[in-house]
Every structure is written in C-alpha cells, then in structure tokens.
Computed example of a mutant assay.
Amino acid sequence: MPTTTRSAGGIAFQIANHAFLAIAAALCLFPVLHIVAVSFSGAGPAAANAVVLWPVEFTVSSYASLFSRAPFLDAFGVSAVRVAIGVALNTALTLLMGYPLSKTRREFPGRNLYMWLLVFVMLFNAGLVPNYLLIKSLGLIDSMWALVLPSAVPIFNVILVMNFMKMLPREIEEAAFMDGASYWVCWRTLILPLSKPVIATIVLFSFVMHWNAWYDGLIYMNDNGKYPLQTYLYTVIQDRDVATIEQANDSATVNGVTLKAAQIFLAMIPILFLYPFLQKYFTKGIVLGAVKG
C-alpha cells in the first residue's frame, strides 16, 4: 500500500490548527464555566469576585431560591409555550413552502415571483413602528401570537429547505407519479422522510431563535407576567427586578450575583440539551441546503 509522508510544514500547520481550535474552544467555554461556578458559590465569594472556574463555598441555595420565585417560573413557562408553538409553526410552514419552490418553473409557474418576494422581504423590513402598529391593530398585544406570528416563516430556513429538496433524486418522485401519487402524497411519504437532516437543522434554528428572543417580548408585552424568559432575564440583569435583588441580598448564602448566574445557566440548559440530539444531522442539513442545486 502506498504510504503518505507529511512535510514539516504540514505537521506544523496541523499543530497550529489544533492549538488555535483548542484556544477558541476554551474562550467559548470559559464564560459558561464561570457562570456555573458563580451560581453554585456562596454570596460572599461571589460578591467579592473571588470565583473563577470552581465554586467557592459550594451551595445550591441560589437554585432553591430561584425555583421558589413565581416570576422566573412564569417566564420559563411562557418561553416553553412559545417554543412549542413557534417551532411547530416555523417547521410546518417552512416545509410546505420549500417543497413547491424546489420545483421548476414549468411545474410551478409562479415560482420566480414568489422567490423575488421572499428575497425582497428578507432584505427589507418595514421597521419597528409599522410592525408594532400592525400587531396592535390586530389586537395581539400581550398575546402569545405577537411573539410567534411575525417570525412564522423564516426566509433563510425556506431557502435551505428549497435547495435541499432540489438535490433529492427526481426519479423517486417520477416513480411515485407513475403509480398515481399526487404532490401531497409525495411530499408526505417520500420527501419528508428523506429530509431529516434539513428538518433537524431548521428545528434547531427555530428553537434557538424563539428561546433566545427577548426584544419582541419587551415591545409587545405590557404585562410583566407575560414576559418570556429572556426578556425577564434582561430586566433582572438591568436591575429592574429590584424586589428580587433586594430579597436575595438579605440572604447569607444568596445574593443578586449568584441569583443572576443561576438564572442565566438555567436559560442555557434547553439548548445544551437539544443540540447533541440534532448535531448528527446539523452539518449535512446546512451544507446541502446551502448549495444551489
């Protein structure tokens, strides 16, 4: 068998490349570990900035205090409902729109017009004031629909799905058409099972988008009790939740610093839990979906 030998330059590049990636990973991981360490530390060391990557005076008092607070639990529940509705709506509409757009102009005569409209709305936005007036005129202020309807059709996800479906073998559909199947039957029984990588990709994108969104909650929700989790965390970090911070500062083991760290870490958990299950599909879905067929 032929053997390959690496040059000194190639070996040096590999070492430098691995070192760079290791440093980049450490820089990304450091803030997370610091937040976790602070959340499990006592009030004194956290207030004195004595915590780096390991808890000092280990305690779970911050989490016990946090789960006894109704505002945090209410906000967590609002975000959970938003993610459930938003991801389902995003995924369904994206798949329904991406399939016909993957067809040729002969199969779908209005395809080019729809593509032009999609690109236009992706590049140009009416702005905050018109969007707010539209949501208000529809009576959606303080409603869950104000958080999920404006982003119901993510155009980038539609383009990913469209390009992925373009690359699927045409012979599969042609064989189904010869057996009398309709486009609906082909989409449901053939295309969707073959599109698992891109479906996992858009589910992950939609989940992250809805879970991390905070600004729309601040704009469209007048009732603080209807804030999603990230909007609530924003108010806490900005020290607007004065009663919570003052109550925490009265405790010997919990203060505002440890409480904020615990809330931030709990907000990370759903994404950290979801990503490993979708990661095996993620690279294939985004690469194939981004390549024009």
Rank of each mutant, 00 (worst) to 15 (best):
Ala213Gly: 14
Leu123Arg: 01
Ile191Glu: 13
Ala19Pro: 00
Ser182Ile: 02
Ala75Trp: 12
Leu160Trp: 09
Met97Pro: 10
Ala175Ile: 13
Ala84Leu: 13
Pro276His: 07
Ala262Arg: 07
Val185Thr: 13
Trp145His: 03
Leu118Glu: 08
Leu118Lys: 07
Ile85Leu: 08
Lys103His: 08
Lys196Val: 01
Gln263Asp: 13
Asp179Thr: 02
Leu118Gly: 06
His34Asn: 10
Leu160Thr: 12
Val36Ile: 15
Asn224Met: 08
Gln263Gly: 14
Ala22Asp: 04
Ser151Trp: 12
Val83Asn: 04
Val158Trp: 05
Tyr99Arg: 11
Ala213Met: 13
Ile271Gly: 11
His210Gln: 10
Ile23Glu: 04
Val32Gln: 06
Thr4Pro: 11
Gly180Trp: 00
Val242Leu: 04
Lys284Ala: 09
Ala200Tyr: 00
Leu96Thr: 11
Val185Phe: 09
Leu73Arg: 03
Leu233Glu: 15
Ser137Ile: 05
Ser62Gly: 07
Phe205Tyr: 14
Ile11His: 09
Met209Val: 12
Tyr227Ser: 15
Leu140Thr: 01
Asn255Ala: 03
Val83Leu: 12
Ile159His: 01
Tyr232Val: 13
Glu246Asn: 13
Val208Arg: 06
Ala176Ile: 07
Phe164Thr: 01
His210Thr: 06
Ala290Cys: 10
Ser79Phe: 13
Ile237Glu: 10
Thr104Ala: 02
Phe20Asp: 00
Leu266Gln: 06
Phe273Met: 13
Asn249Asp: 09
Leu21Tyr: 06
Thr235Tyr: 14
Leu93Thr: 11
Phe273His: 04
Val56Asn: 07
Tyr227Phe: 15
Asn157Glu: 04
Arg188Asn: 06
Leu118Pro: 02
Leu140Pro: 00
Pro45Trp: 03
Met1His: 07
Asn163Tyr: 09
Val81Asp: 06
Ile135His: 08
Thr231Val: 10
Tyr275Ile: 08
Ala24Cys: 07
Gly180Lys: 00
Val52Gly: 15
Leu93Phe: 09
Phe67Leu: 03
Val32Trp: 05
Phe282Gln: 09
Lys280Leu: 02
Ala261Cys: 05
Gly285Gln: 04
His210Leu: 09
Ala25Leu: 04
Ile15Glu: 03
Thr59Val: 02
Arg111Tyr: 02
Ala243Gly: 14
Thr235Ile: 12
Pro31Ser: 13
Asn212Gly: 13
Ala19Gly: 07
Ser102Tyr: 09
Phe277Ser: 02
Val236Arg: 06
Ala75Arg: 07
Leu95Pro: 14
Glu246Ile: 12
Leu93Trp: 12
Val32Met: 08
Leu138Arg: 00
Thr283Val: 13
Gly225Val: 11
Met165Val: 08
Pro130Val: 10
Glu174Arg: 02
Ile172Ser: 10
Leu134Arg: 02
Leu128Thr: 12
Pro130Lys: 06
Val161Lys: 00
Ser143Ile: 01
Asp239Gln: 14
His34Val: 02
Ser79Asn: 10
Phe58Ser: 12
Thr244Tyr: 06
Pro193Lys: 04
Pro130Phe: 05
Met221Arg: 04
Trp54Arg: 04
Ala46Val: 00
Trp184Ile: 14
Asp241Ser: 11
Leu27Ala: 11
Phe30Thr: 10
Thr3Glu: 15
